[in-house]
Design a protein around this nucleic acid. Structure first.
Lengths: 100, 100
DNA sequence: ATCGTTTATCGCAAATCAACGATAAAAGGG
DNA sequence: CCCTTTTATCGTTGATTTGCGATAAACGAT
């Protein structure tokens, strides 16, 4: 309960704080199995830009990429995502409805 | 189910994508009732910086501020936060454990 | 060994963000 | 009407982000 630091939580949120990266996560969640350059076809962005976004998600620990021949296969990192979800849950759990 | 656009979800995440803003949300959740300039005392930041962060949270719809005399009283916007939480839940719900 | 394919990285330009001090605006008290 | 307190906004500076094309790196196939 609430063992996540503000920095960790902010880092996760920041990684998800761009429409393209949300779209990437959504695409990975939808396909279930991993994808690689197919993401480039889905998004209206250059290959280098998509690769950059994937790097951000990878460095945040939300996504995992394993090299498979000339291509790289990506998938969501379930453990991290579940921790993100519960961290947000903890954050919002203790809000009371009283206001000014 | 998944009625939130990538832009909306990213905007929420972006607003939470800074340690100071997570700290503000946490402080508001802890105090339950609204706070105003007390937040400045909690954070190691200048008053103008905190005010800026509050503006970001307000524009994202996560926080509500009502003017009360010379001061402004802030509180978490429960409805939005619940929607944020469920949107993240939907995002991560459909992840399968199969990977590369 | 040399292609073609796929992906990561580099370098750059434009845009945005973060933080601050200074200043304005609002409101209550003398 | 002046202070004081509290908060928002302005203007500026430096850092980071975003997007791209160009290029390098890895690998399978010919």
């Amino acid at each position: 309960m609430d063992t996540t630091t503000d920095e960790q939580l902010a880092a996760w949120a920041k990684a998800l704080g761009h429409p393209a990266r949300v779209a990437i996560v959504r695409a990975l969640a939808a396909r279930g199995t991993c994808v690689c350059g197919e993401i480039v076809e889905v998004l209206p962005l250059a290959q280098s830009t998509v690769s950059q976004h994937l790097k951000v998600l990878r460095e945040a620990g939300l996504v995992q990429g394993t090299v498979d021949g000339p291509r790289t296969c990506y998938c969501l990192q379930g453990d991290s995502l579940r921790r993100v979800q519960s961290a947000f849950g903890d954050l919002f759990a203790s809000l009371c409805s009283c206001c000014c």
